[in-house]
Design a protein around this nucleic acid. Structure first.
Length: 478
RNA sequence: GGCCCCUUCGUCUAAGGGUUAGGACGCGGCCCUUUCACGGCUGAAAUACGGGUUCGAAUCCCGUAGGGGUCACCA
């Protein structure tokens, strides 16, 4: 959208601040990763900054493992942020301070209702099929009526009349009647802040200009805005942020992404599926965002092209096949030594990185993920006698072993052990025998790799080296 | 249930009143070829439904259906 990127003046652009604010109750899942990506891209596109804030107000559910997984996942994807991560739990005092300001200015009030009172209230609302929301029982009540020594929460006094419209950069104009928003709790009875207060204060203090998050938060924007406007009234300089609520990602069956459907952490895509970070980056970028016919988009280009106007409004489904296709593309582009290292880690002890690097050009074109590269590399490190797959065994039936003997004898005399020479020699032999090249190549493949599929057979001969290759042929020849 | 959002091939998307509705993944076929891939060509495949507005609607409006989100002293 033109108004997104071109109408903002340079000074304003330099001030763009986005944030990624996960709650560390699990790994960095695919939806969170995409939210982080969009925030990062938007900030980079506008030459702004992005901050990472760990929303760990709920100490019971937050774990250090989850925090580590999130930070590691972001790093793996190359989504760096411009300041050390902020921990929301460190800022409880500041949150309480704002709650008190709100209270003193009459924008909030003490509520002495107990959890039991509230549950009873909801029960009745359910029975009467009425909307479930706080009924404002302490909103205008005289504090003298408060039970002596009782604990209280602090609730925001939200407007009851009129309506609020936000201009969401993805969802468009969204309007909600203010009566829909009840007086929710901003400070708990134990004095700790609730999420609703904490986000608003933290976003303001960090100078966040654009709140880009999942659209499960769209309703929250209407709850958070009253705090912002009240504080703006009290002390000024609390501008409304620009909101962009991006649609959620669903599983292949259209239902909300859950563990059952592969709402896995990004490390699972790295470790279990053998996905490259640049592939996941590109896939996530294209999931819910489009730019004409463009499919393969590099990191640098993504920064150049990304805009909120290209984000669709409907939820998108996760498709592993497409991710793998993209991964195949990036595998072919990736540096051979880098891949060799990644593959060696997976193979373990017997892997030789140097050999893998040498073999990588012919290995990687046949794979969609690192697991397939590992499989394809198996023949390089196999020990004699090779184990044959069933199909490979079949290739050695009939007169195949006799032919292998001839090939062995012929190649044994070959001193120039290069692909081109070996091919010429073998073709000459095939012609001399009146056979198609396949008649020789397939038994060779079986003898050399124990499999029916492999890189080109002359590449295999070279990679194995003269001695090992001849030994494998000899072992299977009649 | 209240409120909010969404709906183009199976999937990701393009087309912001006039196109044979385009591309990509996946699927089928052909070519290349020593296997498997890669690559190239090609085929099938969509505007949820019903009404309007308009000379003309995937596009604008209304309704219906379906899907999703959210309604905590969770975040």
């Amino acid at each position: 959208m033109a108004s997104e990127s071109s109408s903002a003046d340079a000074a304003q652009r330099a001030q763009v601040v986005t944030r990624f604010a996960p709650s560390p109750t699990g790994y960095l899942h695919i939806g969170g990763a995409r939210t982080a990506l969009f925030n990062w891209l938007f900030a980079r596109h506008h030459g702004g900054r992005t901050v990472l804030r760990i929303e760990d107000t709920d100490r019971k559910r937050s774990t250090q493992d989850a925090i580590d997984a999130i930070i590691e996942g972001l790093a793996w994807l190359g989504l760096d942020y411009d300041a050390p991560p902020l921990f929301q739990s460190d800022r409880a005092e500041r949150h309480a301070e704002v709650a008190l300001q709100l209270l003193q200015a009459g924008h909030a009030y003490k509520c002495f209702a107990t959890p039991e009172d509230l549950e009873a209230m909801r029960e009745e609302q359910r029975a009467q099929k009425k909307p479930l929301r706080y009924d404002g029982r302490w909103r205008d009540r005289d504090l003298a009526e408060a039970p002596a020594g009782a604990l209280h929460t602090i609730r925001l006094k939200t407007p009851n009349e009129g309506e609020t419209t936000i201009h969401d950069r993805v969802q468009g104009f969204v309007t909600v009647r203010n009566e829909e928003i009840d007086d929710y709790i901003i400070l708990r009875a134990d004095g700790t802040p609730t999420y609703m207060l904490a986000v608003v204060v933290d976003d303001h203090d960090a100078g966040v200009t654009h709140v880009i998050r999942g659209d499960d938060h769209l309703n929250n924007a209407f709850r958070q805005l009253p705090i912002i406007r009240a504080m703006n009234e009290i002390e000024g300089h609390w501008p409304d942020p620009i909101y962009a609520h991006i649609p959620l990602i669903h599983g292949a069956d259209g239902a909300k992404l859950s563990k059952r459907h592969g709402a896995l952490g990004v490390e699972a895509y790295r470790d279990e599926f053998g996905i490259l970070p640049e592939a996941l980056f590109n896939y996530l970028l294209r999931l819910g965002w489009g730019h004409g016919d463009r499919e393969e988009i590099s990191r640098a280009e993504a920064i150049k092209l990304f805009d909120l106007g290209g984000v669709g409004k409907s939820p998108s489904r996760f498709d592993l096949k497409k991710l793998e296709n993209l991964n195949g593309h990036y595998l072919r582009e990736a540096d051979d030594a880098r891949l060799a290292q990644l593959v060696a880690e997976r193979i373990g002890q017997q892997a030789e990185e140097e050999l893998l690097t040498q073999a990588m050009p012919v290995l990687k074109v046949r794979a969609k993920n690192l697991n397939e590269v590992v499989e394809g590399a198996g023949f390089l490190f196999a020990k004699r006698p090779l184990v044959m797959t069933e199909k490979a065994g079949l290739l050695l039936e009939g007169d195949a072993r006799v032919i292998l003997r001839k090939i062995y004898e012929c190649l044994k005399g070959e001193n120039d052990w290069t692909s081109a020479t070996l091919e010429a020699t073998t073709k000459a032999l095939a012609e001399e025998q009146g056979l198609g090249l396949g008649k020789l190549a397939q038994p060779m493949r079986a003898a050399l790799t124990g499999s029916t599929t492999s890189p080109g057979i002359f590449d295999v001969l070279v990679l194995l080296g003269r001695d090992e290759a001849l030994a494998r042929l000899d072992a299977q020849a009649a």
